[in-house]
Amino acid sequence: MSNIIAQTQSPSPSPSPSPSPSQRLDQGPMIKLRDVSKWYGHFQVLHDVSLDVRKGERVVICGPSGSGKSTLIRCINRLEEHQKGEIIVNGIEMTDNVKNIEKIRRNIGMVFQSFNLFPHLNVLDNLTIGPMLVRHMKKKDAEELAMQFLEKVRIPEQAQKYPLQLSGGQQQRVAIARSLCMQPEIMLFDEPTSALDPEMIKEVLDTMIELADSGMTMICVTHEMGFARTVADNVILMADGKTVESGTPEEFFGNPKNPRTRLFLEQILKH
C-alpha cells in the first residue's frame, strides 16, 4: 500500500491557498477532498486526488474514459466508497456513518448520463417523491415546487406524461428538475449529455448554463469543451486516476502546462 502511494507523484492542485484557522469556518471550501484513493480489487482507480470546491464555484472535470473522473464525483455522494483520504462536504466528513451519508446526500443533487428517471411514475410524481419522502413535504407544496422547476427547465406541459414518452433531452431536463426539487446546494453532473442526440445536447447545456448563472455550486464531468470554456471557474484534466492539470479555462485551454493535457485537447478538438 505505502509503496503505491510513494510511487504516485500526483501534482495535487491547490486552487486556493489554505486559509488561516479563523477564516476556515466561513470561507472554507464547500467540498474538500484530501488524498482520496480508491481501488477496484488490485486496480487503483483514484491516486491521492485532492480537490477544493468553494460555494458557487463551477468545476468541470474532463479526461479520457477510464481516467476515474466519474468514480471521483460518485465518491462525493458515496455512490462509491473511497478507501483512503478524506472527503468533507459542508463540514461533515464522509465516513460509513449512515446518518452523515444521508445528511450529505440531501445537500447534493446528481444528474446521470442515463437520466435514471423512475419509469413507473409520471413526470410530476418523479419530481415530488423525493421532497415528500426525504424532506417531508406536503403533497400540495411538493407539486407546486415541482411545477416551478418544470417551468425553469421549460417543460411544464409534460408533467402528466411518463418518462418513456419523452425525448432524451426532455428526460434529462426532467432529471435536472428532479434533482433541483431536493433544493440541493451542490449539483453533480456525470456526463449529462453523453447519451443524447446532437440536437438535444444544446437544450440540456442551456439548462445547465442557466443553473450556473443562478450561482449553483456545480461539478460536471463532461466532454463538452465549449461548456467548460464558457461556464467553468476551474477545469480539471484527469488521467489514470490522477489530476493532471487544473486551472481557469484561459490557462487550461490557452496554455496547458502538462503535455498530457495538450495531447487530450488535440484529440478532442480535432474534429
Binding site: N77, L79, E102, R105, R106, I108, G109, M110, F112, S114, N116, L117, F118, P119, H120, I129, G130, L133, V134, A175, R178, S179, M182
Partner: peptide
Amino acid sequence: TPKGQIEAARSMGFRPWFVTRYVVLPQALR
C-alpha cells in the same frame, strides 16, 4: 430493476427501505 434507478434514489437521500418500497418493488412486481 436497473442499478441506475437505485443510485438515483440513493443520491436523493432515500432510506434503504424507501428505495425498496418506492423504486425497486414497483418495477420488480411488473
